[in-house]
């Protein structure tokens, strides 16, 4: 009985809080050195659809940082912290919903897991409502392992198979296993993240030439993702195994359980206006 009363009080308090909160949304891209993530990474249709869920439509931030770097690098987490902190303080955001894609989830998790790293981190953590992590690479990807196998640095030649970015090296499965066990939170056996980290998991790739759904997000990208599924488990989005996507935090939903027509979301589609994903995210704000 006491628990029910406590819960009721908490829910009332939360409802009041959300009703009076200044809600904002931040979109955090994945691997890459973004300079115009609005047009290049997310596309305007997706961003503008998500924006419709905000009471104040100007409270939306599209982050641009260099996520080719290691997650802890100033150009990655430092840049993300700067943009989130300025967004929160300049617009008085006290109810921030963060939407990440792929490796952006790792950079966000770095900030949430290492609160004493940077003076701005506590303010960011305290003002987050939750993170909606679209296909996060929480446990890395076998594709990164595959391209790094045999690729060593030699003083006279540099990287034998060509340079792979810090972010690719970081997303090797055995590298992420180390970081998850030592520096990051949210995986099994580790402390939970201070705020919710909710995963949207892409379970398959469809690239049938006769199926119009295969063209959402780009047909040829989906064909390539279907090829790279050969390095992955049967449950994967063409870049990440489902076990990696749901490796930290909590499952929000597997793509087919919520998308229009029960369509799977390939790794390319989970950041695009495909199969109602934008509406699901908008309604979550």
């Amino acid at each position: 009985m006491r628990n029910i009363l406590s819960l009721t009080v908490l829910l009332c308090a939360l409802s009041w809080n959300i009703a009076h909160a200044n809600t904002g949304v931040a979109l955090v891209h994945g691997t890459g050195n973004a300079t115009d993530a609005y047009n290049d990474y997310w596309k305007s249709g997706f961003v503008e659809s998500v924006r419709q869920g905000l009471p104040n439509s100007s409270n939306l931030l599209v982050v641009n940082c260099n996520f080719d770097k290691y997650m802890w690098d100033d150009a990655a987490a430092g840049c993300l912290a700067g943009q989130l902190y300025n967004f929160i303080t300049s617009k008085n955001i006290d109810d921030l919903v963060v939407i990440t894609h792929s490796n952006g989830g790792n950079v966000m998790r770095w900030i949430m897991s290492n609160p004493t790293w940077d003076n701005r981190y506590p303010t960011i953590i305290n003002n987050i409502r939750w993170v909606n992590a679209l296909a996060p690479s929480s446990k890395g990807t076998p594709l990164a392992d595959a391209v790094m196998q045999g690729n060593v640095f030699e003083q006279s030649l540099g990287w034998l198979l060509g340079f792979k970015s810090d972010a690719v090296r970081q997303q090797q499965e055995s590298w992420m296993a180390y970081y998850n066990g030592s520096w990051l939170q949210g995986t099994s056996g580790r402390p939970a993240l201070a705020k919710g980290f909710w995963n949207v998991v892409g379970t398959d790739v469809e690239s049938a030439i006769w199926d119009s759904d295969s063209y959402c997000g780009g047909y040829f990208e989906n064909v390539g993702l279907e090829t790279t599924q050969n390095w992955l488990d049967s449950c994967s989005d063409g870049f990440l195994n489902c076990s990696s996507q749901n490796g930290a935090g909590s499952l929000w939903f597997n793509d087919k359980d919520r998308t229009r027509g029960d369509e799977p979301l390939s790794h390319n589609q989970s950041r695009r206006k495909c199969f109602n994903l934008d509406v699901i995210l908008r309604n979550d704000i």
């Binding site: 594709l143 990164a144 391209v147 792979k164 690719v168 990208e221 390539g224 090829t227 790279t228 063409g238």
Partner: peptide, 16 residues
Amino acid sequence: IKARSDQLSDTHPGIF
């Protein structure tokens, strides 16, 4: 299933 180098590179820039 086979993939040319440009197809793999387009799918995962910076990896393949």
